[in-house]
Design a binder for these strands. Structure first.
Lengths: 248, 248
DNA sequence: TCCACCCATTAACCTATTGAAATGCTGGAA
DNA sequence: TTCCAGCATTTCAATAGGTTAATGGGTGGA
């Protein structure tokens, strides 16, 4: 494992995440850093990186910025099914499938690394810990998606929104993007509504309510959680599904 | 690839599924059949195969019967996040994570094969096509989970239920469990309610409505879809996420 | 044969959330 | 400096879906 305190370069976020999820060997870290350096890209906000139906031939790792996965019904109803945050992976292994079932769109300017399929497969074959880390990434994604199912299906509006805030906050923390009790939160209320399955109007009311009870501040694209424990309990939030802590 | 017409033995369902998802080599089929034979188990209805928080050390493949994945909130609200049908896998690769985030419970009597972690890893290492098939299984699971998110978040009651019926029907078809326009549907309305995020009462109302419009019959644990196209369009169902057809 | 128990169904009432539409705010382009 | 576009906010009427509770049917066990 590698010193990650100050820098670690561009790949810092990924490496931090992986080391929490599934520790990397020294050579894996080096190989990953190398691969990231070789395929750097940037995208502006509102760009589609992947569209439903695409066939993909590479894996992308987000270095900075937010994206979201979403699906849209014929009549325009949209559901954001997950956010993709710095250090997270877009589509590990997804080149195995003939087509992608959802779209990925940037919410902010984004920097990402792209690793071509062949390169990626070689990397997986030669670096066992890295292969396991990417595998865990996919499993974790699955777990998050399940938690979203219960969020959408069984929580009431206030709980849904509170839960989303808790989750994002806890996902940003290990990559060092939480400062004090605040983090960046660069999405519109429309996006938030589509992520929680609410109407914009009701989402707005719900946020007012969270503000009124003093649980959060959301202003200038910044989320501040005044009382994290209170918010968690309002959300019935239990972080185990995020696999943030390694077993002993 | 192997003759799978009449029998194929116990592993028939899995092999059929995999061959649609990601074709297996002849040796992979043999190795899989072998592994399945070595670890056969049965469970009665209502048994927990996996409970939230467990750490698992094997992979299970369902040979017959239904199970479901579910999560429960502190106050008892429950969400079924997915069903597991014959030929599907419980937890490929999940031994990599320190703990499982959800529970798996049988809905009916179930026969399944259990492959221990070490055995499974060896199998993956020696049979490339099998490793890819299991990987696809995990990816597909992910895709289904996303579709459930939009089902729970953005469809109205009638659409939700209709969509669930369409999905299950299409998932049972490739393993040969659809006969004519009917399939077994061995779950209670309470389970159905928890799968669609509705109350039992409203779920019942919704089913009445589907019956009244002549779209389905649901009786004696059997679902009959009189007009599949009509049901699909009522559900805004688009099957691409199920990856049922191989690319050319 | 009767009793429990589980599941499906129905009814009546209630409320969380939606939808439409108007108002205001803010920052960037011209 | 003005104007426009994209967001946030508010109001109000409408409704999908929830809650509670009662009823009925079927089935397996004593």
């Amino acid at each position: 494992m590698r010193s990650q305190g100050t820098d670690g370069g561009l790949a810092q976020a990924v490496i931090r995440r992986f080391n929490v999820l599934r520790p990397l060997s020294e050579s894996a870290v080096a190989a990953l850093e190398q691969a990231v350096l070789e395929g750097l890209f940037r995208a502006g906000p509102g760009e589609d990186l992947v569209a439903e139906g695409d066939q993909i031939e590479s894996v992308r790792i987000v270095l900075s910025g937010w994206l979201f996965r979403h699906k849209t019904l014929e009549d325009g109803r949209r559901q954001i099914v997950n956010f993709i945050l710095p250090g997270e992976t877009c589509d590990a292994h997804a080149y195995l499938l003939p087509s992608i079932d959802h779209s990925i769109t940037t919410a902010t300017p984004v920097a990402y690394a792209e690793i071509k399929r062949v390169r990626f497969e070689k990397l997986m074959a030669s670096e066992r810990t890295l292969a396991e880390a990417f595998m865990c990434e996919t499993l974790l994604n699955n777990a998050i998606q399940r938690e979203w199912a219960i969020n959408l299906g069984r929580r009431v509006a206030l709980e849904k929104v509170a839960h989303l805030f808790c989750e994002i906050y806890e996902r940003l923390r290990p990559v060092g993007l939480v400062e004090g009790n605040s983090c960046s939160f660069p999405v519109t209320q429309m996006d938030l509504a589509d992520a929680t399955g609410l109407s914009v109007v009701h989402l707005n009311r719900t946020i007012q309510e969270l503000r009124a009870t003093g649980l959060i501040t959301l202003r200038d694209r910044t989320l501040t959680i005044s009382d994290l424990d209170a918010l968690k309990s309002a959300a019935l939030f239990s972080p185990t599904y995020l696999q943030l802590y390694r077993r002993a």
